[in-house]
Design a protein around this nucleic acid. Sequence first.
DNA 1: ATGGCAACCAATGGTTGA
Length: 260
Amino acid sequence: MKIATWNVNSVKARLPTVLEVLKTIDCDVICLQELKCETDAFPYMEIEDLGYEAAVHGQKTYNGVAILSKTNIEDVVKGLPGNEDDEQSRYIEVTTGGETPVRVASIYLPNGNPFPGEKFDYKLSWMKYLEARASDLLKLEEPVILAGDYNVIPSDDDCWDPSVWANDALAQPESRAAFQRLQWLGYTESFASIEAKSHAYTFWDYQRGAWQKDHGIRIDHLLLSPEAGDRLEKVEIFKAARGLEKPSDHVPVIGHLKLT
DNA sequence: ATGGCAACCAATGGTTGA
């Protein structure tokens, strides 16, 4: 199984680009974030034409997450369980995969800037609910994949210049600790576990020529339960997506799992 | 000199993102 996570930064504003990239990477499951459209406005037809079923949790203007799968999607959960009062569409979870079912979540974790402040508090609170849900999902003892834009730079080696990010919500010790706690629960951070490369990025700002200078950060991650982590074969960052016309500022991260 | 980009909604600018 090939599974990807990708923050598209508006599915409507760059639909041709999105469809082209999805065709190129040809994954079985795709987790999308920052749709910036309401659930009913999602381009279901175009996505179905590529062979995908779609589960969508959208909202007007901001946020919005989806999971696309080439096999049947079941047991859809919209919103982070336990955090039902959250009005922002940042979490969707499904079971898919056909004969070898996997539980998959598409996550758009709050940015948290400016730090410190209310938005940072919201980020940390959201991460606590995510940790509780992640813990519950382990009890399934099945392959679980928590995929998304975590808005966390795990270490100083995951950005081009730590000093630039020192006061940013994405690199705060509290953000990193909350991300680390997911791994202490038993989840494997795919890229770090088998690529072990520093200064590999998944996001480059539109500003200041960040892409041309390779001033990026690594904030899009695939976290795997033990049942999925054992079957991880390869992780790719589809960097070419950032060089296309009208690109998203994020690129897809793709995990290859050998599921029997 | 401390910005510079892009999307969105609404409106010819403000908000948000990372």
